[in-house]
Computed example of a mutant assay.
Amino acid sequence: MSTAVIRAFISRNPSRKSFFIYAVLLFLTEVLIALYAPAGFIRGFVGDVLVVILLFCMVRAVVSPVEKAAAKNTGDGIKRLFQTPWLAFAVLLFAFAIEFGQYWGLVDKLGLGGNRLARIVIGSHFDPLDLVAYFVGYLILLGCYWKSRQP
């Protein structure tokens, strides 16, 4: 990634449009990895790291984080979820839930075992290394957030 892209990603106030562009670029990267990368580190680990960042960018393209002052008001607890660190954590938990769903055979239990798209999107094979990859993606998001907060 170029320095300008990294600066835009970690800027203090990136726009929804920026996150939409990041999400599209990450999605295309994921597709290229799925189509052309051989099984191994890139396909098995880097793709899973990027999927957490992709999900984060997709959510941020739809919702903007709430200002801290507004989030401190009573009744605004749910709005705190959309603050960057909390949203990154929510995405991590979602990724973990999907992975554990694979462990428990969620696709088959939902009756989607014969649906190829469902097997690709939800997955059908549990791998503990995927949990590590998701956590690395989460750490990258936190690193970008903390980097954006430095003067």
Rank of each mutant, 00 (worst) to 15 (best):
W104Y: 15
L93V: 10
P14I: 09
F94C: 06
D76M: 14
G137I: 06
G143P: 13
L142Y: 14
A118W: 03
F82W: 06
L50N: 07
T84C: 01
A34K: 13
D76H: 13
S148Y: 11
W86R: 09
P65A: 08
V52H: 01
L106P: 08
L35S: 15
N13S: 14
L139Y: 11
F126R: 05
D127P: 02
S64P: 00
L112S: 02
Y145T: 12
Q150I: 15
V52A: 06
V49G: 03
N13P: 00
A97T: 14
L50T: 07
I53S: 03
Y134D: 01
I53A: 02
L131E: 06
R12S: 11
A23N: 10
V66E: 05
M58Q: 08
K147F: 15
N13G: 09
F94K: 03
Q102P: 03
H125Y: 12
R12W: 10
K72P: 01
G40I: 13
R119K: 11
R12E: 12
Q83S: 11
Q150E: 14
A34W: 01
T29R: 05
A39W: 13
V62A: 10
G47S: 14
V136I: 14
N115K: 07
F82C: 08
T84W: 07
G40R: 14
L139W: 10
R149Y: 09
Y22T: 08
S148P: 13
I122A: 00
A69F: 10
G75I: 11
A133Q: 10
G40K: 11
A39E: 13
I33H: 01
W104C: 06
K17F: 13
F27C: 15
L112K: 02
D127C: 03
D76C: 12
E67I: 05
E67T: 12
